[in-house]
Design a binder for these strands. Sequence first.
RNA 1: GGCGACGUAGCCAAGUGGAUAAGGCGGGGGUCUGCAAAACCCCUAUUCGGCGGUUCGAAUCCGCCCGUCGCCUCCA
Length: 513
Amino acid sequence: MKVFNTLSGQKEEFVPRGDVVTMYVCGINPYADAHIGHAMSYIFFDVVRRYLEFRGYRVKHVQNITDIEDNIIAHANEQGVSVPELTQKYVERYDEDIEALNILRAHEYPRAMGEIPKIIEIVQGLVEKGFAYAVGGNVYFRVRNVPDYGKLSGRSLEQMRAGARIEVGADKEDPMDFLLWKEAKPGEPSWDSPWGKGRPGWHIECSAMSIRYLGEQIDIHGGGQDLVFPHHENEIAQSESFTGKKPFAKYWIHNGLLQMGADKMSKSLGNLITIRQALEKYSADAIRLFILSSYYRSPLTYSEETLEAAERGAERLLGAAAGRVPRPLGAKLEADTYRERFIEAMDDDFGTAQALAVIFEIARDINRADEAGMDVSDAQHTLRELGSEVLGLKFEFRVYKDDSFYAEYAHEIDMKWGSISTIIGDTRNSDDKAIKEAIDKVDSTLASLRDRTDSDMELKVFVEANIEAQKDLRDAYRRARQFQPADEIRNVLGELGVVLEDTPQGTIWKRKR
RNA sequence: GGCGACGUAGCCAAGUGGAUAAGGCGGGGGUCUGCAAAACCCCUAUUCGGCGGUUCGAAUCCGCCCGUCGCCUCCA
């Protein structure tokens, strides 16, 4: 299995350091809802973890929550709430997002606020070893004492010092020195430390959590490409200086960034779609397919058209994985070669795009073989296993949220139904008992739909009961070979956004996409 | 200014020296179906931003040019 390591700039054979693969992925700053760009990172690393486990590794996955820093304080002040109130709210919302996207929970989600003693211990250690110095209540990391500083991002101190945009802090020894501990201003959240009241700097919490929960050296450290410098570069410097052990992380894996139009999607640019907004329009499977359909290191551009395409793809996979008439006596569609090709693709630096191509081929061949009367149960099992276990697909239809489908349906059905009742009327006194009963059922579901109050929480139930009743009525007409009323019912439902499909297992209804 | 990535069909996107350039979406035609839908079958890049070069052979390597983007500052 090969993995691209940012540290070496090339693909390397993946050989973990011990029995358990230790993996640290940079997480959220909880002061706003996570957006699709975050989803890209977390879905990708979710697949990394799932694939490692699929290949038989045990994985320990830790993801930090940085719940104290400047932006958080600013947002809390703006909203007039305390920092813990703000962060708790967004951590909870993040948990919901993660679950909705079918991302496996990390084994630990340490929060910066809970790691202050470890952070102080590391800062103290760095000071004692000469890698850090205090100026007043601030403690800075002394970059020039680290000869290989810049090795991750491939730049030298000289290059960086020459950069025109680096501000020289008045009290820093070197413009590239960075803050480990920040003196608190009056009214800000703070903790006692050997340097007075203050809070952690911007990179130290990740070192502290990684060391505390995974050990001084780990296998995989991941995050978005925008974290390579300065965040991860500084993590390496402070961690390796503190422990005296190299490398801090054996494999550095960075995903490309999501583009929004011409720019990257980011909080600071404000050009973002949150995970929740996306989930109102697209299924989790479609979002995962969208993200996994390209190489993780390439940038990806958000577009409705591409998400919609992914949605249709997800529907096709679902169709192929869904139940079939069992054919135990038919020839078996073998699935081993697909599995081998899937593994081959994933082994090459998580080639999810090619792995997905294999997934779609399984789907096509299942449909084809099923039509030819073969037993496709093994292939379906493989499709579901690779799709859900490794790629994290749910194989569920899109869940429509926060739209007005049910209300509109309830509002319009009476009028629509009235317009076809003349056709129905001709058959109302039919001898066909099934048709008569089905008509009565439709009438009664319509009555209950009419009688409900607007505040009725059971709107969805009533609407679906009515759709079911109409579907059954149409089937009764079809069995009686009365196609005109049958087609009329289908047309009316179609105008209301409901599609009827006749399958070997009977007629099913779906929301129109 | 420095460092880096990318440019493949209408759209998304694999492939990175060799035999017919994956896969998805869309489009066209067909099979099936009472009619639809779904599914399946066929077609949809003689060509990989442009121009040169290396090679028996290049989308794949080298050079130049054009274009797009990221990082260098909080950021997945």
